[in-house]
Amino acid sequence: MDITNLESMPGKKIVKHLGLVQGSSVRAKHAGRDLLSSIKNLFGGELTSYTELLQESREEAMDRMLQQAKSVEANAILNVRFSTSSITQGAAEIYVYGTAVQLEATE
């Protein structure tokens, strides 16, 4: 499966559009690490646990998008976009979406 955030794939042409595919994931950190982060928050710097948290949930969201693309028999997802929104303190929603297509080599 090819995933790209370009609108086309050089050397390949789109033979079929299969519509929008998407995946989302909402995650929160457990209270202990949240407490640690709030102490770190006083002194500034990177909050590693949040970086990891968001990375994990982004992977999960992408996984869900991939599954959806597979179910419509796509072989590529074009123009992928990420979007993040904070819902409450300590939790974030990650949303990934793109266009599922079937590509065919032109040469």
Partner: peptide, 20 residues
């Protein structure tokens, strides 16, 4: 030219200190 395409990403969470 011939290229393979792949999505790459990098993320970071940084907080600002109490004084700022």
């Amino acid at each position: 030219g011939h290229f393979q395409h792949e999505l790459v990403m990098g993320n970071v969470t940084i907080s600002v200190d109490y004084f700022k």
